[in-house]
Nucleic acid binder design. Structure first.
Lengths: 147, 147
DNA sequence: AAAATTAGTTGCATATGTCAATTAATTATT
DNA sequence: AATAATTAATTGACATATGCAACTAATTTT
C-alpha cells in the first residue's frame, strides 16, 4: 500500500511546488500589468482554447466546478475586462463568454510564464521520457474522470 | 510551445480531477465517523509519515504553506482530537505535533480511500510504465524545487 | 543587558467553493 | 393557449483555505 500511496502524495506535493513557482513568477510580473490568480488564468485559458462558443454552464462542466463558482470567476475576470458576457439572441438565458483583446494579451503573458516553467521543469528529461510521461498522464486522466 | 504547455495544463487538470474524486469519496464516508477535509488528511498524513519529531514550522516547510495556515489546520485537527500539541521542555517556543490514537484510526480510514483511489487511477498501466512515471515525477520534483 | 532571531499566534483580507433557493427564459405538455 | 417542466444564470448563506503583517513570548547572539 505504501508505494502507491506515496506516489499520490508525491504528485500532490509536486503540484504544490509547481503552483508555488508559478505564483512566485507571477508575483515578479510587471507591477503595472493586470494580475490574475491561477484559477482565473485557468478559466481564461480554457475559454480561449475552445473552438466553439461557450456559455457558463459549459465551463462549469469542463472545469468540474459548480456553476456558481464559475459565475464568480467570470465576474472577477469581467471586472478586469478580460472577458465579457454576450447574451445569445436566440436564447436569452445563455451568456456567451468572449475573451477581450486585453484578455488575450494578459493570457499570453501568463502562457509565456507557464511555458518557461515547463521548460525548466522538463530540464534533463529525454524526449522518450516525456512522451511516456504524457501518455501516462492521458491514461490516468481518463481513469480519474471516472472517479 | 503548445505541446509542453498542454502537458502542464494536463497535469493541473489531472490533479484537480483526482482531488475532486478524493473529496467526493470523503463526502461519501460513514456519517457517524469523524470527518476531515482533504487538507486535514494531508497534514495528518504528513505528520504521521515523519520519523522524527516535528513542530509546526517544519510542517509549514514540508507542505509549502504559511505557518498560519498550518496553525489553523492544526487547530482544526486538535479540536477533533486527532492531533495534540506538546510543548518542548527545553525550548518552550516549540510545539511537538503528536497524532492521537483516534488520529491514527481516522487516518487509516482515509488512507484506505486514498489507496483505493490510487488503484483505480493506475488501472491499465504496466509496472514498467508506473516505474517510469515515478522516476519522472522524482526528477520533475527536483527541478520544481528550484523554481 | 540589549539586540536579534525564532516559533507561534492573531487580525484582516482575499479566494475559492458548495448547496439551496430564486429569477427569467425557453420548451414540452395538456 | 395556458400550464408545467426544464434550463441558465444569479444570489445568499456558509465553510474552507491561505497569505501577509503585526505582535508575543522564548531563546540565542552580540
Amino acid at each position: 500500500m505504501e508505494k502507491q500511496n506515496l506516489a499520490l502524495m508525491e504528485l500532490g506535493r509536486l503540484m504544490r511546488e509547481i503552483f508555488r513557482g508559478f505564483k512566485k513568477r507571477i508575483g515578479e510580473q510587471n507591477q503595472e500589468d493586470i494580475k490574475i490568480t491561477a484559477e482565473q488564468f485557468h478559466l481564461l485559458n480554457a475559454i480561449n482554447l475552445k473552438q466553439e462558443e461557450v456559455i457558463q454552464k459549459d465551463m462549469a462542466e469542463i472545469m468540474g466546478k459548480d456553476k456558481s463558482a464559475i459565475l464568480r470567476l467570470i465576474d472577477s475576470l469581467e471586472e478586469k475586462e478580460l472577458v465579457r458576457r454576450a447574451v445569445d439572441k436566440n436564447d436569452r438565458r445563455k451568456n456567451y463568454l468572449m475573451v477581450t483583446k486585453t484578455g488575450e494579451r494578459v493570457l499570453k503573458q501568463y502562457q509565456i510564464i507557464a511555458f518557461q516553467m515547463m521548460e525548466d521543469i522538463q530540464q534533463g528529461l529525454s524526449v522518450s521520457d516525456l512522451n511516456t510521461f504524457r501518455r501516462i498522464i492521458e491514461h490516468i486522466k481518463d481513469n480519474a474522470r471516472k472517479l
